[in-house]
């Protein structure tokens, strides 16, 4: 192998980026040729120094800065999915299904017209028991006032007192 050819291969030989057969040919030549050997040494030095510098001077992210960059990347858009991706993996479908489920739930459980007009949910049982009490007092009691309701002006709290049939509210006796 001639010097010109050897020197063409040298930049690749320093990084072991050439076939082993070429490397052994070049090395055999360099043993006899000091000029090519010097050239090879120069490549080793320049590449070695540059690599050393590249390794020393590595920049890195501050954690907070990195988190911010990732957040911005995620924040803008959701990852696009292949058109062949199954619908459960798409977020939009999940939201639509949740909305449909909520509507269906509302329709069947909290149906409009479920309660009779004028009756507030939860008060029906109280009203019925009051009516029964009134009926029971109607004939037997001397007391014509059977209950008294006190309503707080501040809080709207209601207290209903039911009187014993023998209780004399107006002190008639």
């Amino acid at each position: 192998m001639k010097c010109k050819k050897v020197q063409r291969y040298l930049p690749l030989i320093v990084g072991s980026d050439i076939s082993k057969s070429k490397v052994s040919e070049v090395k055999a030549h360099m043993e006899k040729c000091p000029e090519c050997r010097n050239e090879y040494d120069s490549y080793v030095l320049s590449l070695g120094k540059t690599k050393e510098w590249l390794a020393k001077e590595r920049e890195d992210w501050e954690d907070r800065e990195w988190q911010q960059v990732v957040k911005i990347a995620i924040g803008d858009k959701e990852p696009e999915l292949s058109p062949l991706a199954l619908w459960p993996f798409r977020k939009v479908w999940a939201y639509v299904m949740m909305a449909v489920f909520a509507v269906v739930l509302t329709f069947f459980v909290i149906r409009p017209g479920f309660y009779k007009e004028g009756v507030i949910p939860g008060t029906r049982m109280v009203a019925e028991s009051q009516a029964k009490l009134f009926e029971s007092f109607k004939d037997k009691s001397e007391q014509d006032i059977i209950s008294m309701t006190i309503v707080s002006k501040d809080t709207g709290l209601k207290i209903v007192w039911f009187f014993n049939k023998n209780f004399d509210l107006e002190d008639k006796k």
Binding site: L54, E59, W61, V69, V70, I72, A73, P79, E80, L81
Partner: peptide
């Protein structure tokens, strides 16, 4: 570091990385 060596400016490299991350997230599929 790849972007830094290419742009020779750390701030610009970070800008490039931001753009890179957006692309990675968008085209991950």
């Amino acid at each position: 570091n790849m972007a830094y060596r290419m742009t020779e400016n750390l701030e610009e490299a970070k800008e490039v990385c931001q753009d890179t991350l957006i692309k990675i997230y968008k085209y991950l599929y």
